[in-house]
């Protein structure tokens, strides 16, 4: 039983990454109608950014937490302005293909310059060590990841669902022409949204840098799992993607304990089941 608690908690940590990433995907999809295949690569860039801020700029983890999402977010806005923007009005699939190409380029370039085995990134001093919870030894950093990402998710939800900016954003998703008629700069808003979604990916990257080896392909396989998470949750609601992210992390954690061989496939199996029962996903609206 104790082991079970431990696994649940560990699952929650993984769920934090799923939630942050699928949240970013959902925001981007909602606004740009693009499935951002480059999300995994941008997550990787976030982690690399943290590494460079530390090794070149001497800026600590805490700075990275703020700066990396901004840097990568700006890079995202640049991508949107120069490339993604041109796909407006075309089929969704071109967006997928373009971002897939961008992901390949980013991963390839990073691989060339930084090798395959990756770069080290230590846990910040303040968060090293751990506490004994009785049923497990919990590294403080892991607890921090859960709490921090939960806070970020809730904040994002609040901005989108409860603020004026969020209201514009949702309105522009529904009917861009009408919103433009009110004098709101929709293209700029789209760019900002892409930046925001990408920034969330970068944030997840910074959070994972002390846990996982910082390496060029760190996001390549993760993105496919996150796709499955998104399909399960449906991309209709912000809250939906957050909850699905955390839940799937926990389910995956349980599988690692009960039947570890299947822990990488359980998310995909769940996806098939959900599709058979409710094709629009758990929280999704009909397409």
């Amino acid at each position: 039983m104790q082991a079970l608690y431990a696994q649940l908690l560990v699952g929650l940590i993984n769920g934090s990454f799923y939630a942050l990433l699928s949240l970013g995907l959902a925001i981007i999809f909602g606004m740009l109608n693009i499935i951002n295949f480059a999300h995994g690569a941008l997550y990787m860039m976030g982690a690399f950014c943290a590494y460079f801020l530390l090794s070149v700029g001497g800026l600590s983890y805490w700075w990275a937490l703020v700066l990396a999402p901004i840097v990568v977010g700006l890079f995202g806005i640049l991508l949107e302005r120069t490339m993604l923007q041109r796909l407006a009005g075309l089929d969704h699939l071109y967006g997928l293909l373009l971002t897939f190409g961008i992901a390949l380029i980013l991963q390839g370039v990073f691989q060339n310059y930084f090798g395959s085995s990756g770069l080290p990134y230590a846990i910040p001093d303040l968060l090293t060590g751990g506490v004994n919870l009785g049923f497990m030894y919990l590294p403080i950093y892991r607890g921090w990841v859960v709490i921090f990402s939960l806070a970020v998710c809730v904040a994002t939800w609040f901005v989108i669902e409860r603020t004026k900016f969020g209201a514009y954003l949702r309105a522009a998703t529904e009917n861009p022409t009408l919103v433009r008629a009110f004098g709101i700069n929709v293209p700029r808003m789209i760019a900002l949204t892409y930046g925001l979604g990408v920034g969330l990916a970068a944030l997840a990257g910074v959070l994972s840098a002390p846990i996982n080896q910082v390496r060029p392909l760190m996001g390549a396989d993760l993105i496919i799992v996150v796709f499955a998470v998104v399909v399960i949750g449906g991309m209709g609601s912000i809250m939906g993607s957050i909850i699905t992210g955390f839940t799937l992390g926990v389910i995956e954690g349980l599988t690692k304990y009960l039947y570890p061989e299947a822990s990488n496939t359980v998310v995909f199996v769940l996806m098939v089941l959900v599709l058979l029962v409710k094709p629009t996903g758990l929280t999704g609206r009909a397409a």
Binding site: D91, L93, V231, A287
Partner: peptide, 21 residues
């Protein structure tokens, strides 16, 4: 069961499932 972009993501996820098998 799903169209467009979802179809792509589902086929991708299913292929990853088969890959692991």
């Amino acid at each position: 069961r799903r169209q467009g972009i979802y179809f792509s993501m589902i086929t991708l996820a299913l292929s990853q499932l088969v890959y692991f098998i």
